[in-house]
Simulated assay, not measured.
Amino acid sequence: MLLQHDFTDGDGFIGRSDFWWPGERVVGEFDLKAKYVDPGIRGDVSAEEVLYREKLREDRIRSLGYGFVQWGWSDVDNPDRLKR
């Protein structure tokens, strides 16, 4: 597993993942609610725009042939759910 892995495609830099399992070709992201609802984190961008940009980024990563998983605190609090 690698932390903070950069992804690029033919259009350039896509983004940096929280986790990357190259052998399994899976990207993992810990998804914090704050990045959508806290103006101090998202700046002048609306929560809807942050979500839309995240979707586009995820779509670009998936188009490279990688799986993509996300989890939050409720998953971490339930190890069986996190494992699935």
Results as ranks from 00 to 15, higher is better:
L56C: 15
E29N: 04
R16T: 14
D6R: 14
R42H: 10
E49S: 06
D31L: 04
E29C: 01
F19S: 09
V76Q: 02
R16I: 14
A47C: 06
T8V: 13
I61N: 02
R84H: 07
V76G: 00
D44M: 15
P22I: 12
E54N: 10
L32P: 00
D38K: 11
W21M: 05
L51E: 07
R53H: 13
S17D: 09
G28V: 05
L3I: 08
D9P: 03
G65W: 15
P39D: 13
L32N: 06
R60K: 13
R57P: 01
R53S: 07
H5I: 05
V45G: 01
I14A: 08
R62S: 09
E24P: 02
D6E: 10
G15P: 10
S74K: 08
V76I: 13
G15Y: 14
S74V: 00
N78R: 08
S74M: 04
G23W: 13
R62F: 11
F7C: 13
S17N: 07
A47I: 13
L32E: 10
F19P: 05
G40K: 13
E48W: 10
Q4E: 15
W73M: 03
Q4P: 11
D44N: 15
D18M: 09
G10V: 00
R57F: 09
W21Y: 15
S17K: 08
Y36N: 05
F30M: 09
A34P: 07
G67C: 14
I14N: 06
R42N: 15
W21Q: 03
T8N: 11
Y36C: 05
R84F: 06
D6K: 14
V37Y: 11
V69P: 02
D44T: 12
L51P: 00
I41L: 10
Y52P: 00
K55Y: 09
G65E: 11
F7Y: 15
I14V: 13
K83R: 13
I41V: 15
R60A: 08
D18E: 14
I41Q: 11
L51C: 06
R57L: 10
G15M: 14
P79D: 08
G23V: 07
Q70A: 11
G40S: 10
R25P: 05
D75R: 05
F13S: 00
L64S: 12
D59W: 09
W71Q: 04
N78F: 02
I41P: 06
R81T: 09
G72P: 01
V37A: 14
I61W: 00
V69M: 06
M1K: 12
K35R: 11
M1R: 12
I41C: 03
K33E: 05
L82E: 06
F19M: 08
A47M: 09
D6L: 11
W71V: 01
R16Y: 08
V50T: 00
E49R: 05
K55C: 07
V37S: 11
D31N: 09
D80K: 14
F30L: 13
